[in-house]
Design a protein around this nucleic acid. Structure first.
Length: 827
RNA sequence: GCCGGGGUGGCGGAAUUGGCAGACGCAUCGGACUUAAAAUCCGAUGGGUCUUUAGUACCCGUGUCGGUUCGAAUCCGACCCCCGGCACCA
């Protein structure tokens, strides 16, 4: 065995070996427990970055570990290959998006292979391939059949730079999440998926997701934004109509002193007709319409409004109250109108003060007096109902139930659950995406493309001039078609789908990637799904993960899969930072993974990135840390190299480890200790950093044993080295494979059984007991591990040091924690 | 404002059930090997005190203040700070 580990040559050798022997291919096997490990597939930008290295290293450790534990492991990889960068490359550099994408895939695949990740490449897929997007289109048709895909005119977010519509989720602080350009409002007809239909399930089923990070679930909960309230109808004074409002505080209705409509509310025009306020209100509405989206909806904007001249009747007090139009009420939440209770809502309070509207207190704190004259800000806490007729004396919660019941009985209103979540806008005016399989016929209207005609293929002969609108609009052969129903000339939809649609179901396709007859075979999918461990960036906490859950629920409703949730466990890994900031070209702090692999090898890169921080935390890149990881692997290599000749003579399967002396027993205990620790860290805690430190401790123990003995026990050493190699195999797959083969052990190290440990061996003969006096550590004693409690107390009290403390004192209490500690409480 | 996560040496981090705070790694320092250096191996390394003993000694120490407990990084209360999500959502 060479003295130095030649990673460049050996890593390539083993990568080739694994591939040639299809070591990581997977098939359905009902006799074995399955494990599906999945990392979020990458967008093929062309180059692997450190974030990729981190996520795929994590996944690979889990996949390799599970395989060694005897699971039938599915660990696939593919490409989230539709998207804007491909199109931008076409516009800028004249490369066709198709060529650009497939070149990038090829390049990135080579890079991924050089990391030594144990993928089953047979199942590779790319969302831009017709064999894949055929089924994305098929799902669109199913959604359409179930009325979950629909077309609607609406005010949408339009990115002026990307020249396409964005989903709400893709607008971050008023700018496009991709290109940071300003997002403007535009009125367009667009395709939507009715994700709101599943709002309740998406929220409720978080309950099932016990192994999801709390923060991800919270983000989704915030996003879905469920609230419980009552929809109440207020009769209008001048019109034979009711004004419907939504409130979460029906208990405060006796304090409702005015109403507010959103400027966009359809009733505004009717209400002001012929009134002296008409022109003033129209001017106000026009002014609001000109405001940009952010200013219009920001809580920081000043609340402004005008009186309409109209009145509504508070159905409980039967008083006439004024109706205003104001900017602080939004059309797209609830009913676009509110009952204002200034005494108990800060926004209403501010507005009422400004425009001198009535304030009526209806809830007062239990221990102080609050009334219309001394109120200085809205009182929103729980309290006692006052000035509220039959609600008086109740607390807020009881009042809510009583008034809600009363309203439902008297048909004044109904309980209603509202969500902040909007339907998912999926159409994009771009070329490089899945075409929406819809045809517009002058006679038949909207006609879905028949399933037999799928896929609707993207034409390749397209002009990319960077101008507005979809490039597909100019492709005659694509647009012009016949109506599938009446046969007359008709036009194809030229919008493509949001790429989040493509990635909402890919984890299902992996289970049966090559299927040409159907989207997948349900038996195969039901064997593999759900994904046992999903790993990816926290930036997908809302968008991708919510959409994928929505699709899973929909596909479950179609009866194609039994699981209701796609991802059993989720690991949201942190970012890779350099100098405290995310690596980016503009900051000039990018470390290229390929350089690290070239200089230190893939095993070192993987080990460092897993060791430097727990997976869910951000990780600071450190060249010294990489050196440390490399040093550790060399340390493992050296000790193996030194003893390989002697060890391989031994029959490693039949090691006899009897009559060990004290030092030997200590090393044996360390071996078992490491097995226990690494197993638990990988299985339950997913703490790779502490698992690696446990292996380091084992290696340190081997060195320190060798340093301390005159003559090594070769059998024990063989067992220790062999176990080290097995434990390290998921982290450093190449180096361990090479040592394994040098030891002339059969098969691949990655096909071995994961080592076991024995509790019996973990048990020390002698243990160190910490002696505390009044909770402070004062001494330590070595005693037999199985010492009786009474005897231990005696031994402790006999210690010289303890005696010193006991002088003139009385022991009032003695606490014994077996094998750990004795605490004497003295007075 | 609401919700969630977090705050531990010079640095990354560990402490899993309330029981030795600082595992492991980095950095630094010392020693061995070497003509020398690198590499490697061995060792030290939270802060402080010492006017008998430099230790097997003592004091302090996990954002701050208080509490519970024989014992608190860990539990409870109040507060400060950092990160993330949501936000005129009625």
């Amino acid at each position: 065995m060479e003295e130095d580990y030649n990673f460049n040559q050996l890593e390539k050798k083993w990568q080739q070996y694994w591939q040639e022997n299809s070591l990581f291919a997977s098939e359905v096997d009902l006799d074995k427990p399955k494990h599906y490990t999945l990392e979020m597939f990458p967008y093929p930008s062309g180059n692997l970055h450190m974030g990729h290295v981190r996520v795929y290293s994590i996944g690979d450790v889990i996949a390799r570990f599970k395989r060694m534990q005897g699971y039938n492991v599915l660990h696939p990889m593919g490409w989230d290959a539709f998207g804007l960068p491909a199109e931008n490359a076409a516009i800028k550099r004249g490369i066709h998006p198709n060529d650009w994408t497939w070149d990038n895939i090829e390049n990135m695949k080579t890079q991924l292979e050089s990391l030594g990740i144990s993928y089953d490449w047979q199942r590779e897929l790319a969302t831009c391939h017709p064999d894949y997007y055929k089924w994305t289109q098929w799902l669109f048709l199913k959604l359409y059949e179930e009325d979950l895909a629909y077309r609607d005119r609406s005010t949408v977010n339009w990115c002026s730079s990307c020249e396409t519509v964005l989903a709400n989720e893709q607008v971050v602080e008023g700018v496009c999440e991709r290109c940071d350009s300003e997002v403007v409002a535009k009125d367009l007809v667009q395709w939507f998926f009715k994700i709101t239909e599943y709002a309740e399930d998406l929220l409720a089923d978080h309950e099932q997701l016990k192994d999801w990070p709390e923060r991800v679930k919270t983000m989704q909960q915030n996003w879905i934004g469920r609230s419980e309230g009552v929809e109440i109808e207020f009769p209008l004074v001048d019109l034979e109509e009711e004004l419907k409002v939504y409130t979460t505080r029906p208990d405060t209705i006796f304090g409702a002193t005015y109403m507010v409509l959103s400027p966009e509310h359809p009733l505004v025009k009717e209400l002001i007709k012929g009134k002296e306020q008409e022109q003033e209100v129209l001017d106000f509405v026009a002014q609001m319409a000109e405001q940009d989206e952010e200013e219009r909806t920001s809580p920081d904007s000043e609340k402004v409004g005008v009186f309409t001249g109209a009145y509504a009747v508070n159905p409980l007090t039967e008083e006439e109250i004024p109706i205003l139009v104001a900017n602080y009420v939004l059309m797209d939440y609830g009913t676009g109108a509110i009952m204002a209770v200034p005494a108990h809502d800060q926004r209403d309070f501010d507005f009422a003060k400004k425009y001198d509207l009535d304030i009526q207190v209806v809830v007062k704190p239990e221990d102080s007096d609050l009334n219309n004259d001394n109120i200085e800000e809205a009182y929103v806490e729980d309290g006692i109902m006052v000035n509220s007729d039959f609600l008086n004396g109740l607390n807020v919660e009881a009042a809510f139930d009583k008034i809600a019941d009363y309203m439902e009985e008297n048909q004044l209103g109904t309980r209603k659950v509202n969500y902040r979540l909007r339907d998912w806008l999926v159409s994009r005016q771009r070329y490089w995406g899945t075409p929406i399989p819809i045809i517009y016929c002058a006679e038949c209207g909207i006609v879905p493309v028949p399933e037999r005609d799928l896929p609707v293929e993207l034409p390749t002969d397209v002009e990319f001039d960077g101008g507005g609108g979809s490039p597909l609009e100019d492709v005659k052969d694509f647009v012009e078609t016949d109506c599938p129903e009446c046969g007359r000339a008709a036009q194809r939809e030229t919008d493509t789908m949001d790429t989040f649609v493509d990635s909402s179901w890919y984890f299902l396709r992996y289970a049966d990637a090559g299927n040409e007859e159907q989207i997948f075979d349900s038996q195969k999918v039901n064997y593999w799904l759900n994904v046992d461990q999903y790993i990816g960036g926290i930036e997908h906490a809302i968008l991708h993960l919510l959409y994928a859950r929505f699709f899973m629920k929909f596909i479950n409703d179609l009866g194609l899969v039994t699981a209701e949730e796609p991802f059993e466990r989720l690991l949201a890994q942190g970012m890779v930072l350099k100098d405290g900031a995310k690596m980016s070209k503009s900051k000039g702090n990018v470390v290229d993974p390929m350089d690290i692999i070239a200089n230190y090898g893939a095993d070192t890169a993987r080990l460092f990135i897993l060791f430097a921080a727990p997976p869910e935390k951000d990780l600071e890149w450190s060249e010294e840390g990489v050196e440390g990881a490399s040093r550790f692997l060399s340390r493992v290599w050296r000790v193996a190299a030194k003893y390989v000749e002697q060890i391989k003579e031994l029959d490693l399967a039949e090691l006899e480890l009897n009559n060990l002396n004290k030092l030997e027993k200590e090393l044996q205990r360390e071996v078992h200790q490491a097995v226990k620790k690494v197993t638990e860290d990988l299985d339950e805690r997913k703490n790779f950093n502490t698992a690696i430190s446990a292996i380091m401790e084992l290696v340190n123990a081997i060195y320190s044993y060798l340093d301390g003995v005159a003559e090594e026990n070769l059998e024990l050493l063989a067992a220790a080295i062999k176990t080290t190699v097995l434990l390290l195999a998921p982290f450093a797959p190449h180096l361990t494979e090479e040592i394994w083969s040098q030891l002339e052990l059969a098969g691949s190290v990655h096909q071995q059984d994961w080592p076991d440990y024995e509790e019996e061996v973990l048990q020390k003969d002698e243990v160190e007991i910490v002696v505390q006096i009044n909770g402070k550590v004062r001494d330590r004693v070595e005693v037999a591990a199985d010492i009786a409690e009474e005897e231990l107390k005696e031994v402790v009290k006999e210690q010289d040091k303890v005696q010193g403390y006991l002088e003139d004192k009385e022991v009032v209490k003695t606490i014994v924690v077996p094998q750990k500690l004795v605490n004497l409480v003295i007075k």
